[in-house]
Amino acid sequence: MNAHHQSALAQKLLFLADDELILAHRNSEWTGHGPILEEDIAFTNIALDEMGHAATWHRLRQELTGEEVDTAVFFRDPAAYRNVQLVELPNSDWAFSMLRQYLFDVYELVHLAQLAASSYRPLAEAAAKIRIEEIYHLRHTAAWVTRLGLGTAESNQRMQAALDTHWPYAHQLFVEMPEDAVLAEMGTAVSPTSLLDEWQQITTAHLTQANLIIPTNHTPPTTDRADHTDHLTSLLAEMQSVARQYPTAVW
């Protein structure tokens, strides 16, 4: 692997890790605030899973860059984060978080199936491992999409509002970054753009069955993973505060 290829791969691992980590953090904000006890437990578990997946991607990146996982997570400024804006949007109601997780779960399953065929073995192995765990996420969030979409007028209206907000943002997941193009050429990872059709087919079929209307706006507010909303700054300020205040702490 030449230096150009290696640096593209390290950056791709950052995309994967940052999406999972920031979504995990947002979901963890529901801990103790879930609408019912079972869902409080379920969403906390899903957050913990995604955090574990972020750590898995970061460990692969560490093998390439040498940067410690905790350093990358707690001592990197918002401008250096490479997550999509979808995951950094602040929570509002339960429908908002559930629908976001559903859209992300479908993306992950479609994406991981392809990454599991990567020519870079550590990436393929991690994708295969994570994919198995994700089965439980999609089962859960897909059921809630149906339940809330077909529930009451209010639950349907809240899900529709969530879908209207998330749909364009979710499309950023499929924007090809320059690193994606390098990796696709080398057979290391598929371009996310190649996943869009399958993702749209799966989500459109399921959301439509849940009596939800697919928004016509498919244009994400940004196509650059370096662009963030101010919400990421406040999220990281909170997430990183303890580590930055006590940089030598061990736990």
Partner: peptide, 13 residues
């Protein structure tokens, strides 16, 4: 099945 997620990642309720 009451909840596919439980007190730890490996358990359901």
């Amino acid at each position: 099945l009451k909840n596919a997620f439980g007190p730890t990642l490996c358990k359901s309720l």
